[in-house]
């Protein structure tokens, strides 16, 4: 194994909020709780989970767009989680992000060319005289003609805007891109185009992706490894192939079972997860999934299950699962 490109260590994020009509009650949203992941160069690591699981927060904290409450993010030997804006600036070129909503991700008052040229000129990556060629190449990379450079965002379709957003992320020749639900808001027929584009660009430039999504089929399609998150913690982390063939955590199994299938007969005979995700304002003690878990035992209500590697590269945080074969699935009432 080579050294990871990026190491996330004990990353924790809490948001103070004020509740009540007059903000009289202080509370804390526990968005992310002691997350540990290594991301290798050139891989696609996906984080999946339901809303409030902390997957987007992870992306923002890794890029230091939101400052983590504690923990570190080691990139190129530096703990970037501790850096301020000025200290972060040189790293911004390497670490980029593509957002979910193509309609608000571009400044409506700037042409596509201006939007793409800004980071290049700001970081001094090209001279004014070279900028035209660079724009041409960037737009070509994302499958757009040079003529888009003089257009404004409102003249573009959602898919085209998302291509521009990807080009903007590429403008500084980054090594790592966070794709925060980058295709979720797009139309079905356009999603596949953008997924293909992301795969092509990864091949061409050796990019590393942190892919944040809720669509398991999409995640399975493009990921090397997948982390399943629940209420701010990793439930399971495994190579994509292993996770989808042999999901070990009860939450992963439930998520997979909830994926709509295009086979009408299969679709009507699935197991269902009952209840809803508890509030991150007051996450349950012990295993945070125990309130919905069909296997929950007394231990799950009090002890936090550690993330253990049960097979090489396949880790799971569940008291009921000690190895891929020795689970108590068979004895479960569900």
């Amino acid at each position: 194994m080579t050294a990871p490109l990026l190491s996330i260590r004990n990353l924790t994020k809490e948001f103070p909020v004020r509740l009540g009509a007059f903000g009289e009650r202080a509370a804390t949203v526990h968005a992310l709780d002691c997350l540990n992941i290594d991301i290798s160069e050139g891989e696609t690591l996906s984080l999946v989970g339901e809303s409030g699981c902390g997957k987007s927060t992870t992306g923002y904290c890794v890029l230091n767009i939101q400052r983590p409450t504690s923990g570190s993010v080691i990139y190129a030997g530096t703990d970037i989680a501790q850096l301020d804006d000025d200290g972060m600036r040189p790293f911004r070129r390497d670490l980029q992000i593509v957002f979910q909503d193509p309609y608000s991700t571009l400044n409506p008052r700037m042409t596509i060319g201006e939007a793409l040229a800004e980071p290049i000129l700001f970081h001094g990556l090209a001279r004014k005289s070279e900028i035209r060629d660079r724009l041409h190449q960037l737009l070509a990379d994302v499958g757009l003609s040079e003529r888009f450079a003089s257009r404004y965002p409102h003249e573009l379709s959602g898919g085209q805007r998302q291509r521009v957003a990807i080009a903007r992320a590429l403008a500084c020749q980054p090594r790592f891109i966070v794709c925060d639900e980058a295709i979720s808001a797009l139309d079905v027929s356009v999603q596949a185009q953008i997924l293909n584009l992301l795969l092509d660009l990864q091949q061409k430039y050796g990019l590393t992706y942190l892919f944040i999504a809720h669509d398991l089929a999409v995640v399975r399609h493009i990921s090397d490894r997948v982390g399943v998150m629940y209420l701010g913690r990793l439930a399971e982390l495994a190579p994509a192939a292993a996770l989808f063939v042999q999901p070990l955590h009860p939450y992963t199994r439930a998520l997979l079972s909830a994926v709509p299938s295009t086979d009408p007969r299969a679709a009507r005979t699935r197991q269902r997860l009952q209840g809803e995700v508890p509030s991150p304002l007051a996450p349950p003690p012990g295993c945070r999934f125990h309130t919905r878990c069909p296997l929950a035992r007394a231990q799950c209500r009090s002890d936090v299950p550690p993330l253990r590697e049960v097979v090489s590269g396949h880790s799971v945080a569940c008291h009921a699962v000690s190895s891929p074969t020795a689970t108590n699935w068979e004895h479960s009432p569900a």
Partner: peptide, 24 residues
């Protein structure tokens, strides 16, 4: 095209998805 472009839990990972070119 719509059906083909949907990633499913049974297709070949990392393959190019057949996509419909253009926009409506």
């Amino acid at each position: 095209g719509l059906l083909a472009s949907l990633p499913t839990l049974t297709d070949k990972p990392m393959s190019r998805l057949p996509s419909i070119a253009g926009t409506p």
